[in-house]
Design a protein around this nucleic acid. Structure first.
Lengths: 138, 138
DNA sequence: ACAAATGATACCAATAAGGTATCATTATGG
DNA sequence: CCATAATGATACCTTATTGGTATCATTTGT
């Protein structure tokens, strides 16, 4: 049961770091040093976030990344969608015609419910909330 | 976000089927016909369930599988553990010394909370509850 | 011009998911 | 007592996903 992958985790950490730098454009090498994430991997991640409209980028010397959205609008659920694909609820293995007994569909209902709740909670976690809860000191 | 894998799903369906047969020993070919699960795959699954003490098996003609536990004691959470490995909460990617800011650990806390809740709900789903909710008619 | 940054993209290795196949063993019915 | 119908153990295979790496092109500040 691995709710989020490394991609998503790294992305969230990077976004938190960037958010804490306010309007400063943050280059990848700086994040690599601060977060200990393999450089090429982090580069790919932030590039994706750029394409997805979560980060804005600037090239050249002094370039880097900054948030394209307000910290309270960057939700964990969005990152999960971006890096782990669209969340497929209710994809019945037996395509509804076969489903041999009611019990199995009860199973689907249960699991869908659990996933739905998890999603709702992922939706509530934003980088604003993480930074706030963190009470960081540096 | 795929909470349960096919293994677990198939296992749960097979267990429901077996539970509905009461004390009858159910052979794999019968389950294959009823549940449309690839035979060798289902065989592997029920064998595992046997080793794990969820099913009891008998060999030879007239042999097959039956529940080793009461239906209300077979929990979805157990099957997830069996087929998807022990649930590892709180495995921090950065082994606690590095963790560069409080925000990241707030992230872990959030995710752990969500996973913990999901687990608790998986624990509540039993074969007994599925069969009961299903109100099957055949 | 040069250095420092991102953009795009292709590639690669390890792991897990999903499934197949084979041979040995055990029990039952005739 | 042997054929048959079942499970036990185990090895293998294929595909997708995860977790990266590497390369070259482009942009921009000094």
């Amino acid at each position: 049961m691995k709710l989020i992958t490394r991609n998503t985790d790294y992305a969230m950490r990077a976004l938190c770091y960037i958010a804490r730098q306010r309007e400063r454009s943050v280059p990848v090498p700086e994040m690599v040093a601060a977060l200990k994430i393999p450089r090429p991997f982090l580069r790919k991640i932030v590039q994706t976030l750029g394409r997805e409209g979560v980060l804005r980028s600037s090239k050249g010397q002094g370039g880097g990344f900054l948030l394209a959205l307000k910290p309270e609008d960057v939700r964990l659920a969005d990152l999960v969608r971006i890096f782990q694909g669209t969340i497929q609820l209710n994809e019945c293995i037996f395509k509804k015609k076969i489903c041999p007994n009611r019990g199995t569909c009860a199973l689907k209902r249960e699991i869908d419910g659990i996933e739905r709740d998890a999603l709702a909670r992922l939706h509530k976690v934003t980088i604003a909330s993480l930074i706030r809860n963190g009470k960081h000191h540096d």
